[in-house]
Design a protein around this nucleic acid. Structure first.
Lengths: 316, 316
DNA sequence: CTGTTAGCGCTTTCAA
DNA sequence: TTGAAAGCGCTAACAG
């Protein structure tokens, strides 16, 4: 009484076998219009709610989507991008009866990837911070997607390019870049865009490595000021990094954007609230996450590239 | 070959029945030291990885934890508190083979709660924004927890109290409060703390309703300035709201904290980056979320109260 | 303490 | 197009 009716009850009421009921309700396999109707009606009358767990066990496909974030630090799991993406996937996969699991992976995690591939409760894996897709276990083939690689990414070249051109148009000529971590292949694209644009404009390249954190941004800003004191703009590939840069500059009595312009990347909520408000590039993180989940689960085309559009506020 | 061995293989290699192997590996039920060893060894030799889905189907317990957020607006799912809590639960439940699903519930959602209770893939439900726990379907009994009610909450009375006392000690005497939404029972505690403290100090109460968003904070600040122009402090129950207040005050040329002090609540990352940096109360959101998940899943005591400690920065 | 026997609820050959 | 039957991998009485 208290638990909802099983497929068998629906089949009985509809006067068909469970096999037929299953075909109708799951939509795979043939079914006559007559039995289709009967089953649908019976299911509705009984208030039938399917049991995704039983279904997925029978099909051998796992009940959760794993979001595996590769990073040097374990606390990357509280990074705003990660939490937003996790929540977006948890909302996107909810209707399918799936859940999302979140896990940190160190830079070298071949063994853990093997364990993941062996875990039959995992339907698919979405990865972030991964680059060489060669190390992926064969058993994961066809059921993973990698954000920032694998054709599923933001047009960072375009976004950084637009920001740099904006700085140039504003008269900035000594533009430094705080890039991404060197171990991350996805960090190469913005860097390449920067060096290409700088050399095309006949300007010097001034690059410091970052890691998407505010702390690293503060350190990077100090490095820039020390090595190239005449810098008049600092571009970054992360809003958190840009916030760190802003803090260091402000503490040093440097006016932003008057003395040095600063740009971020991602447009996280905080970007609108810094002082001065951050000029950055906006990315549809929720859409990207949902697309990654769909791609990993095989319910959507794998290749998608998302726009990176500049949003100009006060800092540049 | 490619898929990992099942329990039957382990049992065979260990020379016991699957039942015994199950008892040993799942830890429920008796087992002699001898068979314990044999099974453990066999499992290790074979590289056995348990199949949580099969296990949970057999036990009839569902494979995902649903985080149901009640709010007037559907985009509450991208609220920083929600995304942080979701990610924390997704990380906390990962080792158990569970996933997290995220879902928005409108204020009046009795029917949806019934559907949720009927969904056998849902192991347990963690709710936020719910207050009257009376409307909870009986089938959910014993497998849900409510953040902000149900004894699982932050000591908001203590946190708000500490901030108000700090304002008072700093000489503020005309303190306004931007509270929580009136439909939320959990918003009553901070409000009660405020009115109690104000009347005890012989000060007037100045309350405006908020809703945890920055937009509402901006509007609330305008209301305060209009109704009580001599206000010298604005306390809030949300950092986002406080940011909105800060924006309005700054735009109006009012100096913070010189003319009006401002306090937030929650200590989200942005609190440290506003201008001036926000004095607020810090809450262990990740711990709270993990505790809620554990409570809902029945793996921990239900009643827990978390500290709300003031963190004083520049805004008050 | 252990093995046997039924399932959990759904899917999927295979014959008809 | 349909039904019977055999699982998916594990758990839980129930005897012994």
């Amino acid at each position: 009484m208290s638990s909802s009716p099983a497929l068998a009850e629906v089949a009985r009421l509809a006067g068909v076998s469970v096999a037929t009921a299953s075909r109708v309700l799951s939509g795979r396999g043939p079914a006559s219009a007559a039995s289709r109707d009967a089953v649908r009606r019976a299911a509705a009358d009984l208030g039938y709610v399917p049991h995704p767990v039983a279904s997925r066990l029978a099909r051998g496909v796992g009940t959760r989507l794993l979001f595996a974030v590769r990073d040097r630090r374990a606390d990357v799991l509280s990074d705003p991008f990660v939490t937003r993406a996790t929540a977006a996937m948890a909302a996107a996969t909810e209707p399918a009866g799936l859940g999302v699991s979140l896990r940190h992976l160190p830079l070298n995690a071949a063994a853990e990837l093997d364990r993941i591939a062996a875990d039959r409760s995992i339907a698919a894996v979405v990865m972030a911070g991964h680059d060489s897709l060669d190390g992926i276990p064969a058993r994961l083939r066809g059921r993973f997607a990698a954000i920032g690689a694998d054709g599923l990414d933001v047009d960072s070249t375009g976004g950084i390019g637009a920001l740099l051109r904006h700085l140039h148009a504003g008269g900035r000529r000594r533009i430094a870049l705080v890039g991404g971590p060197s171990w991350l292949a996805a960090a190469r694209a913005p860097l390449a865009a920067y060096t290409a644009l700088m050399s095309a404009a006949g300007l010097p390249s001034r690059v410091v490595a970052g890691d998407f954190t505010a702390a690293r941004g503060r350190a990077a800003a100090r490095t820039v000021l020390r090595r190239w004191p005449d810098t008049d703009a600092i571009a970054t590939v992360s809003d958190a990094t840009a916030v760190g840069v802003l803090q260091t500059l402000t503490e040093a009595g440097i006016r932003v954007p008057h003395d040095i312009a600063v740009t971020g990347f991602d447009d996280i909520p905080v970007a609108a609230w810094t002082h001065p408000a951050l000029s950055t590039a906006t990315h549809p993180v929720e859409l990207i996450a949902a697309a990654a989940a769909a791609a990993a689960l095989g319910t959507a085309p794998r290749i998608r590239r998302f726009p990176s559009l500049p949003v100009l506020r006060a800092s540049a």
